[in-house]
Design a protein around this nucleic acid. Structure first.
Lengths: 148, 148
DNA sequence: TGCAATCCCTACTATTTCAGTAGGGTATAA
DNA sequence: TTATACCCTACTGAAATAGTAGGGATTGCA
C-alpha cells in the first residue's frame, strides 16, 4: 500500500469539498459520517490542507470547510503531497556510493517510478475528477444513484 | 517514500546477481560490503527471492547466490512484489460504500496511479537495466569508472 | 578428516509511523 | 446565551521498519 489513509481519506474529503464549491461550507460531521471516517482524524488532515492554503474554514453554526481555490486549480498531487509528504522512491543508500549516480541503474528505475506517479497526480485536478465522475455516470445507464 | 529498504536494497542486490549471470555464485558478503548493507538483513531478502524462485544458492566455500532465471526473464516488478508485497494504492475504505465503485472518483485516481507504477516495473527486466547502464556509461565519456 | 566459508533459520529489538482517541478551547449564528 | 462548529495538543495501541543476534547445516579444499 503506497498511500496511507491520510492521502486516501484526504483526497476523498477534498473531492467532497470540490463538489460543493460555491455552495457554502461543508461540516466535518457530514463528511465523516458519509464516508465513515473518524471526525477527529479528518480534522487533523483538514488542518494540514488549510495550512497549505487549499481550504478555508467558517466557524460557528452552519460553518464548515470549503475550498480556498477553484477545483481546477487544485491537483491531486497538491493534496497528496500535503498529506503524505513528497512522493519519493529512494533516498540514496550511501552518499559516497551514490556520487556515482550517473551509472546507478537502480536509481534510474526509481526515478522512472517517481516520474510516472507524479505525471498522474500533477495532471489531474479536482475539477477533472468531477468531470470524470459525471462521464462515468452518464455511461452507466442502469446506475440508479445520483452523484452522492 | 513509497519503497522501503526491502525493495531498494533487494533490487540493487538482484541487479548485482544479474551482472554476474553465468559467472558463478556471488557471496552475500561481497554484495553487502559493496553497498554497505547489513549482511543478515540482505540474507532475509534473498531468502524471499529464493522462495519465489528468482534465485538459487550454492553452499560452502566459493558458494553464494545466483539468478535462477535469465536476466531478461526477471522484471523489476517481480523483485519488488516479492519484497514489498503487491503495489496497491487503496483497499476500499468501506465495502458498502465501495459497492458504488463505478461512481467513485477517487478510486479511479488510485487505479491510475497503480497502473502507471505497474506499467513501469513490469516492463523493465534486469537485462534492460544492464543495457541502460552500459548506454549511460558510453554517453558519459569523462566518466572514468568501469561498470562496478 | 577437519576447518573455514558459506548459506539457513528463528527469534529478538529499538524506532518510527499509522490510525486514530481524548479532551479541552474559541468563534459565531440564531 | 447556547448550541454548533472549527481549533489545538497530547496521548495511545498496533503494526511495520530496519535491522541484530546467535545458533545450525553444507561443502570445497588443504
Amino acid at each position: 500500500m503506497i498511500l496511507s489513509t491520510k492521502g486516501r481519506y484526504g483526497l476523498k474529503a477534498a473531492f467532497e469539498l470540490s463538489r460543493n464549491y460555491g455552495l457554502g461550507p461543508v461540516s466535518l460531521k457530514k463528511i465523516s459520517e458519509k464516508y465513515g471516517i473518524s471526525e477527529s482524524y479528518l480534522e487533523q488532515l483538514f488542518a494540514k490542507l488549510k495550512k497549505d492554503g487549499y481550504i478555508d474554514t467558517v466557524r460557528g453554526p452552519q460553518g464548515g470547510y470549503l475550498l480556498a481555490k477553484k477545483p481546477e486549480e487544485i491537483t491531486v498531487g497538491m493534496v497528496l503531497r500535503t498529506l503524505e509528504g513528497e512522493i519519493t522512491t529512494s533516498d540514496c543508500l550511501n552518499k559516497e556510493v551514490c556520487s556515482r549516480e550517473s551509472i546507478c541503474a537502480t536509481r534510474v528505475i526509481f526515478e522512472k517510478i517517481e516520474k510516472s506517479i507524479n505525471d498522474v497526480i500533477d495532471n489531474i485536478t479536482l475539477a477533472d475528477m468531477y468531470e470524470e465522475q459525471k462521464n462515468i455516470l452518464t455511461e452507466g445507464k442502469n446506475e440508479q444513484e445520483t452523484l452522492s
